[in-house]
Amino acid sequence: MTELEKILGPRPPHDLLEQERLRFLLPTVLLGMAAFVLIVSIFQPYWRLKLFAPQYPQGLYVYVYINRLEGDIQEIDTLNHYIGMRPLEEAASLERSLSIFIVGVISLLVIAAIYVHNQYAALLTLPALLFPFIFIGDMYYWMRNFGQNLDPQAPLRNTIKPFVPPIYGEGYVGQFKTIATFENGFYLAVLASILILAGLYFHREAYKPLVDTMQHADKHTSHETS
């Protein structure tokens, strides 16, 4: 076994590839789809907050993409300054500036896993697998950070106490009812995770026997040479 094969795993013999085409195609397709779906999710919002109050009959909206905020940000910031919350654009600015690059890299790692035919493939897909949950965790961190750190000099400091807006479902702040929901981008990222899990399963189905055979043969030869 070469050093390269130790890292990348065994290459299936040509005649076996011909014989069991589906066996080797499935993991490639599933992991490829996962990478594609994750890339597509960049263009969709991951999360949405709707705010309702009597004087906003159409509601106010915040759409959170992995790299930007859209919706009635200026209006919400105008309202938030009364309770001393910092402008929304200040939240997760590092994460947002790097997010496209990061999603690109972790999608490439998923693609790379297609060419790695051993257990390291699972390791390569791990960041993409966990991405939607990391996203939620980070957003929760920032919402907590913003909700808990209100300017004590704000006009409404006595009326609105520090709070943590719910990450999913309904909440109440002042005269506003807030409704948080996950959006298409998040569901796509979750779909990518499911595709990765399925891809890894078929990956194992396809290559585990080859790895076992190779290791067995390797032990055998090393035993012989020693």
């Binding site: 569901y187 779909l191 499911i194 595709l195 399963y201 078929f202 189905e205």
Partner: peptide, 24 residues
């Protein structure tokens, strides 16, 4: 187990795709 697992996993993937498409 090995015999039926691929079908089960495939079915799960299909269901997941359908659920996401519905949500979108």
């Amino acid at each position: 187990r090995q015999k039926y697992m691929p079908y089960l996993v495939s079915a799960l993937v299909v269901v997941a795709v359908l659920v996401v498409v519905f949500l979108i």
